[in-house]
Computed example of a mutant assay.
Amino acid sequence: MKNLLLIIFISVLAFKAFAQQTDRDAIKQTVNTMFDAMRKGDSTLLRSTFAKGIVFQGVASKKDGSTVLETENPDDFIKQIGTPHKGVYDERITFNDIKIDGPLASVWAPYKFYLDDKFSHCGVDVFQLMKTTDGWKIIYIVDTRRKDNCPE
Rank of each mutant, 00 (worst) to 15 (best):
Asp125Trp: 06
Lys118Ile: 12
Leu115Lys: 12
Arg92Asp: 08
His121Cys: 05
Ile98Gln: 11
Lys118Leu: 07
Glu70Gln: 14
Phe119Arg: 09
Ser120Tyr: 08
Val107Lys: 00
Asn73Phe: 02
Glu72Val: 04
Ile78Thr: 13
Ala109Thr: 14
Asp76Arg: 07
Leu104Pro: 04
Phe119Val: 09
Glu70Thr: 14
Lys86Ala: 15
Gln80Ile: 12
Tyr114Pro: 02
His121Glu: 05
Ser66Ile: 06
Thr71Gln: 10
Pro110Val: 00
Ala109His: 04
Ile100Val: 14
Gly123Trp: 08
Asp76Tyr: 05
Ile93Cys: 12
Asn96Asp: 15
Gly102Asp: 15
Asp116Ala: 02
Phe113Asn: 03
Tyr114Cys: 03
Ser66Arg: 07
His85Phe: 08
Thr71Glu: 10
Asp125Pro: 07
Thr83Met: 04
Tyr114Ile: 04
Val126Asp: 04
Tyr111Ser: 01
Gly82Asp: 08
Lys99Leu: 13
Thr94Phe: 11
Leu69Phe: 11
Lys79Pro: 03
Phe95Glu: 06
Ser120Leu: 12
Lys86Met: 12
Asn96Ile: 01
Val88Pro: 02
Ser66Gln: 13
Asp76His: 06
Leu69Lys: 09
Val107Pro: 01
Ile100Cys: 13
Pro103Cys: 00
Gly82Trp: 09
Arg92Ile: 12
Ser66Val: 05
Asp75Val: 01
Val124Arg: 04
Lys86Thr: 14
Glu72Phe: 15
Lys79His: 13
Thr67Gly: 04
Thr83Lys: 03
